[in-house]
Each structure stands twice: as C-alpha cells, then as structure tokens.
Amino acid sequence: MPQEEPINVRYVAGLARLTLTAEEEAAYTSQLDRILHYVAQLDEVDVSSVPEHTLEEGNCDFTRPDVARASQPMESALQNAPRRSGDQFQVPKVVE
C-alpha cells in the first residue's frame, strides 16, 4: 500500500468538509499514520484467487412495485431544520 509519504490530514479533512484545529491535525496525523501502517498488513494477503467483481452483494437486485404512496409530510420533514423560512430550509447565499 502507498505508505511512502504520511497522510496529508489537512487536505483529506477538506475533502470530508471538516475544519480541524492545529492540535487535531497533529494528533490525527500520527494516529492515522499508525492505523495506515497497521492496515498495510493486507499487502501480505494473496488475493490472486479472488474474482475481480466481488463488490456485488447479490441481494439488492430487486425493485419494489411502482405504486404511488404518500411521502413524509412537509411539516415533519422541516421540523428539525436548523433555520427555516416558511416552508423552506434557509441557507447562506450560494450565488455571488
């Protein structure tokens, strides 16, 4: 596994939409390096016998009948909104 350079925690946290403090960044860098070093043991496992397509679990391949049903009422969908405006979720401006 690619272990030649330490994990860039700040960059990955950005991808995950998480702001980290400097202390968190330092702690996660050393902890995750250790965890990645541990999981690198999978390099030793011979997987040459495993078929290429193992991701399908084989039990999600059905659809339910196409019958119209009532969905969640709007008020209950909005009841936990951190901020709302009438019948809508309120968010910061997204167009400059």
Binding site: M1, P2, I7, V9, V12, A13, L15, A16, L18, Y28, L32, I35, L36, V39, L42, D43, V45, V47, S49, V50, P51, T54, L55
Partner: peptide, 25 residues
C-alpha cells in the same frame, strides 16, 4: 478522515478494493 482517504483518488484500489478482496477470503 480515514474513510475519505481510502476512497480518495490514487488510494481507492490500494485500500478499498483490496479490503473487499480480503473480505471475500
């Protein structure tokens, strides 16, 4: 962070796909 890393470009095959193959075993 760990999950985002193992799915990120350049690492997906080395970590995530490999783990699924070991899961098969």
């Amino acid at each position: 962070i760990l999950g985002t890393y193992v799915l990120s470009s350049g690492y997906y095959d080395a970590y995530y796909r490999k783990a699924w193959k070991v899961r098969y075993l």
